[in-house]
Design a protein around this nucleic acid. Structure first.
Lengths: 338, 338
DNA sequence: CTGAAAGCGCTAACAT
DNA sequence: ATGTTAGCGCTTTCAG
C-alpha cells in the first residue's frame, strides 16, 4: 500500500515560497543572510508543509553531526545512570545528542568505537571504559576528540575528567583511622582500572602514614556479585577487619548486606564501612553510608565543556581532576566518642 | 595548524585498488555482487587506508539510518536503566543504535520528538512517556513507527508493550487480602499515566471483590520525593492502613524508609508492603520486597521485535501485553500464620 | 540579498 | 561482474 512516505525537502518549500532552494537553506542556517521578506515567506511555506531540515544531509556537508558517542559498560552501578542523565541534558542544552554504545564482554570496546566512527560522531565520551592506543590513534586520525569520564589513562591524546582518587582513597582511609580503627581492610575497585588502582594507592598511603598494615585487600571488581563474594571471603578469615573502605558505594552496599544480613554483624557497632561515589542510594536511610563524594554535576559540566571546546575550537586534550568531600553519615563508628 | 582531517572515502580506496568507486560500494554492501578478486583488492586497499563507509551518506540514499530514537523522562527509577541497557544490547545485536533524548519539565516531549525526526531515525521508543495525537500524526506522516514501552495509549497508530497492569494491581492487592489484611491503602503511580491508572483500577477491583473499602489512595507520582511525602501523609492520618500496595518498587522503597526509619514501625510486623516492577534492589536483603514482577527481558525483546518488524516489514502497530508473576519475599505478613 | 551550480560520500539503476 | 551516471537533501562558493 504505502512504502516510504515522500519527504518534504527544501525544494518543496522553495517552490511553495517562490524562492530558490538555497534561499530556504539560508533561512534555516544560523549565520545566514536573508531579507525579512524572504524569511517570512520561507517560514510560512515550511510551516505549511511541515518542513524541517534533514540534519544528516547537512552533516554530509558541514562535517558535523552534533552527535556525541557515549561508550558505557554497565548501568548496574547507580553512578552511571545519574551521569548519563546529566550528560544527556547538558549536551542537549548545547544542541548535541548522545548515541549510546554499550560495551561488554561480548561487544568489545574496539568494535564498538569503530561503529561509532562510522556514524561520524563529533566526539566520544567513554564512561569507565579504557581506550587502546590503537583506537586512540584512529580517533585522533579522524579528528575526533575523546574524553574519558571517570577513568584516567596515560595517553596525552586523551582528555579525561576524574576526581582525585588517590586523595579520595587517602581521605576515606584517614577517616577510618581517625575514628580509632586499626584493623582495616580495603574492598578494592577493579584493579584493571585507574580508579580502582588509585583508590588503592590512596588507601596504602594512609595506612603507611599511620604505620598500619592492611588486614586484607580484595578486588571486588566494582560489581555486586564479586563484591558479595569478596566480602564473604574477607570476613571468613580468622583475622577480621574492624573497618573497611569499599572503593565504590555499589560495593559498599554489597558489603553491608553481607555484614548485616548474612553475618549478623552490626554496622557501625561491629564494623565500620566507608564507600566512594555518594550515589543517591547512599543517602537513603537503609544504608545512610559514609562516603567520599564524586561531584558528578561538576564532572559532567567539565566533561561537556572540555569536549565541546575541543570540537568547536580545537582546544588541546586536557586532564581535569576534581576533589570530592567526605560525606559523614552513619556507617563509621568513632571509638573515642563511644 | 590542522582542521578537519582529510577523510578517507570510497574514491580513495577505488583509486588504490584500481577499480571503480561503485565496485568499492558493492564490496561493502551486503547484497552485493563482486568477484572474489575485486573483493580482495578492495578489502586490502580499504584496510591499508583505514577506510570505513560513511553510514550517514549511505542513509541519505537508502533512507535508513539504523538509528532508533529513545525518549525517556528520568532514570531515577532503576527500572529504566535496566531497560535501557537491555534495549541497547538487543538493538546493537540487530545493527541498530540508540540516540537518547531526555524529556523533562523544561524539554517537553513534542520538541524532543521533533529533534528526533530531524535525525531521520528509523523508529522511536518512548519509555514511560506519552505521545500527543499531533505528534503521533507527524511520526505517522514521516513513516516512522513508534512503540511505547511500559505505557499504554488509546491511539491505534501507536504500538505498545506493557505488562498487564490491571491484573497486576489485582494480584498485588489480592495477595494482601489473602494474607488477612483488611485496612489497605494504595500508594498510587502517577495518575496521568496509564500504568498508574491501571494499577489503581486493579487495586479497586480487588478491594471491591472482597467488599473492602480503601483506607486511602494517594498519588506518589512515581517519584521518591513525592512518595516520601505521600507515605507520611498516609500514616499521619488517624486511620492508618495495615497494608499498602505501592505502584512501583521505587515508591515502595520510599514508603519502607519512612515506615521503618521515621515512624519506627516494623515491616511486615506492623504493616505489610507490596511493590511493582521487581527491580534488582527489590531483591537485596535491605528491602527484600514482595512485589509484582514486570518481565523486563521479555518486554524488551517484544519491543525490539515489534519495532523492527514495523521498520523492516511494515507490519502494523500492535498492543502487546505480558503478565508478570508475584514474587513473594518478606514485606508481607500472613496473619493466619502468625 | 539572491539564484545557479557544484559537490559532501555514497547507493542504485543502467548499460556494457 | 563492472563502470558510468544520476541523484539522496543540503550548504556553500560564485556571480549578479
Amino acid at each position: 500500500m504505502n512504502g516510504t512516505p515522500p519527504r518534504v525537502t527544501a525544494v518543496d518549500v522553495a517552490r511553495l515560497a517562490g524562492v530558490s532552494q538555497s534561499a530556504v537553506s539560508r533561512v534555516f542556517t544560523p549565520g545566514a543572510s536573508a531579507s525579512p521578506r524572504t524569511v517570512e515567506k520561507v517560514r510560512a511555506a515550511a510551516k505549511a508543509l511541515g518542513y524541517r531540515p534533514n540534519v544528516l544531509a547537512r552533516s554530509l556537508i558541514t562535517g558535523r553531526t552534533r552527535i556525541i558517542g557515549l561508550v558505557v559498560a554497565y548501568l548496574e552501578n547507580q553512578f552511571y545512570p545519574v551521569a548519563l542523565e546529566l550528560l544527556s541534558h547538558a549536551l542537549q542544552d548545547r544542541g548535541y545528542h548522545i548515541l549510546v554504545f554499550m560495551a561488554n564482554s561480548t561487544r568489545r570496546v574496539p568494535e564498538v568505537v569503530e561503529e561509532l566512527l562510522d556514524y561520524q560522531v563529533d566526539g566520544i565520551i567513554t564512561a569507565s571504559v579504557a581506550m587502546s592506543s590503537e583506537l586512540t590513534a584512529r580517533c585522533e586520525a579522524a579528528g575526533i576528540p575523546v574524553v574519558l569520564f571517570n577513568r584516567g589513562q596515560e595517553d596525552p591524546r586523551l582528555s579525561e575528567v576524574t576526581s582525585d582518587n588517590v586523595a579520595g582513597g587517602r581521605l576515606a582511609t584517614g577517616h577510618l583511622i581517625a575514628a580509632g580503627h586499626r584493623r582495616i581492610a580495603h574492598l578494592m575497585g577493579w584493579q584493571g582500572s585507574s580508579t580502582g588502582r588509585d583508590r588503592a594507592v590512596g588507601f596504602r598511603q594512609a595506612m603507611d602514614a599511620a604505620g598500619l598494615v592492611p588486614v586484607s585487600m580484595i578486588d571486588g571488581q566494582y560489581q555486586r556479585e564479586t563484591a558479595l563474594a569478596a566480602a564473604r571471603e574477607m570476613f571468613a578469615r580468622p583475622d577480621r577487619p574492624e573497618a573497611v573502605f569499599a572503593a565504590s558505594d555499589h560495593m559498599a552496599f554489597a558489603l553491608l548486606d553481607v555484614l548485616r544480613h548474612e553475618l549478623g554483624l552490626s554496622v557501625p557497632g561491629d564494623v565500620s564501612v566507608i564507600g566512594f561515589d555518594d550515589v543517591p542510594l547512599a543517602s537513603w536511610p537503609v544504608y545512610d553510608l559514609t562516603t567520599i563524594r564524586q561531584p558528578v554535576q561538576d564532572m559532567v559540566a567539565m566533561t561537556v565543556d572540555l569536549l565541546l571546546r575541543q570540537i568547536e575550537g580545537a582546544g588541546p586534550p586536557r586532564k581535569l581532576r576534581v576533589t570530592g568531600p567526605l560525606v559523614s553519615r552513619s556507617t563509621v563508628r568513632h571509638k573515642d566518642q563511644n
